[in-house]
């Protein structure tokens, strides 16, 4: 992707051509504003342990309001991925109270969890792209799961992949992409279904600072269209370039900033 900067990722260019809000709204639609849920995530004294090991997360109390954009930082092994797993309902707390989209997770039946999961977009730390599917099919997956109209799916996916600069690679396998390109496919897949909540685990781990900066700008654009965004990273320099509130994990505990800053981008 280094070789084709000018054409490959125009959307990530911080110039005047970036992020036409019209496109963003058309592709992503509006997120939570319409629903009247003001607390997207609520944790009260949540603790997590894997098996019989020690608690990797302890006494986590956290309220994430609609309309927020957070960074989540902490040393390697501090539990960032674990906290995000809790949020995308892939891990259940061993104690404490947990609400997602207003639903008490302990009381939600197994049949109702998928509906909640579908409203959450996840960029996994290790991407988790399926190498036996084309890039196009990878990105289309959430829409097909939701049973969307196939023609609309085709249009939206093509448009979004164009938008992240991979429009020419639709039918290639993700294995043929560079790390940074795979990351963009992972991001496209996370946002294609217009999630109300976007959780990104080290989305800038594989790219240089300049592209990392652009990726965060992309998330900000999504945020502007109504998606709550939480970005886990241990790139402190990157966090400092933006003025979003920062959740810090240390010693298995979460330190929530006292004052919540508003968008600064």
């Amino acid at each position: 992707m280094r070789g084709a900067k000018s054409t490959v990722i125009p959307v990530l260019d911080p110039g005047p051509r970036t992020w036409h809000l019209a496109t963003v709204s058309r592709v992503f639609g509006i997120g939570l504003q319409q629903e009247g849920i003001d607390r997207v995530i609520r944790f009260e004294n949540v603790g997590v342990r894997y098996g019989i090991g020690p608690e990797v997360l302890r006494d986590i109390s956290l309220h994430i309001e609609q309309d927020s954009f957070y960074f989540l930082t902490g040393a390697s092994g501090a539990g960032k991925s674990s906290l995000l797993k809790l949020m995308y309902l892939s891990l259940f707390p061993s104690r404490g109270y947990m609400q997602v989209f207003g639903e008490d997770i302990a009381r939600t039946s197994r049949r109702d969890l998928p509906q909640l999961r579908r409203r959450i977009g996840v960029v996994f730390q290790d991407f988790r792209l399926l190498s036996h599917l084309s890039i196009f099919d990878n990105v289309a997956l959430p829409l097909r799961l939701a049973g969307d109209d196939e023609k609309r799916t085709r249009n939206n996916v093509s448009e979004l992949l164009d938008w992240v600069g991979l429009g020419a690679r639709l039918h290639d396998s993700p294995d043929t992409l560079s790390g940074g390109e795979q990351q963009r496919v992972a991001i496209a897949r996370a946002v294609i279904s217009k999630p109300s909540l976007l959780l990104a685990d080290e989305p800038t781990g594989n790219v240089d600072d300049r592209i990392a900066y652009r990726l965060v700008r992309l998330f900000e654009e999504l945020h502007r269209s109504g998606t709550v965004v939480i970005v886990a990273t241990h790139n402190d320099a990157l966090v400092r370039r933006f003025s979003h509130p920062v959740l810090v994990l240390a010693d298995s505990e979460l330190h929530v900033p006292a004052v919540k800053a508003k968008d600064g981008a």
Binding site: Y88, L89, S90, R110, R111, L113, P114, Q115, L116, R117, R118, R119, I120, V122, R128, L130, L141, P142, L145, A146
Partner: peptide, 15 residues
């Protein structure tokens, strides 16, 4: 790999 991804994305068990 596929199964757990589909699961996290909100696929019903029956799917």
């Amino acid at each position: 790999e596929v199964v757990s991804l589909l699961h996290v994305m909100g696929a019903q068990d029956s799917y």
